[in-house]
Amino acid sequence: MPRVSMKVNGKPMAAEAEGRTLLSAYLREGLGLTGTHVGCDTSQCGACVVLVDGAAVKACTAFAADLDGAEVTTIEGMANADGSLGRIQQAFQDYHGLQCGFCTPGMVMSTAALLAENPKPTEDEVRHYLEGNICRCTGYQNIVRAVMAASGQDTTALAAE
């Protein structure tokens, strides 16, 4: 089986991958990074979103072999150097932006991509950007709050129209 190498969360890593090995399987089974979750098979739910060369990508809809040599960031790479929660992670905890936690890695990674592109998004922009990440628990309101808070914005007006 061919070996595929990537820089994952800043570290060079390699694992065997068949042609059909998806990036999600490569991360979860090949590298043991089980923080990236798989919630569907039609590229809809976004639980598997990771950053590939800085861009949000659904890891269940990309072949590992196609991304040989890429730089990948997963949820395991989002904490601060001292292990404390990073800015986005902390906002999700502070604003109760997660419940069962299964969609959370994808939400956090999509948020990271959004804030890199648009550091002060409006509520509408946040909601629109997260349309490819399905959460069944939170009703999204606290996720949106968390994203607004992570971008340093006031969240108090969010509930009202």
């Binding site: 739910c45 997260l130 349309e131 990440n133 399905i134 999204y140 509930a159 009202a160």
Partner: peptide
């Protein structure tokens, strides 16, 4: 039988909750 046809609520489908 999939999220292509079963419409799950997304972030831009629900809003304005006052609890």
């Amino acid at each position: 039988g999939s999220y292509m046809d079963y419409a799950m609520p997304r972030a831009d489908d629900v809003r304005g909750f006052v609890v």
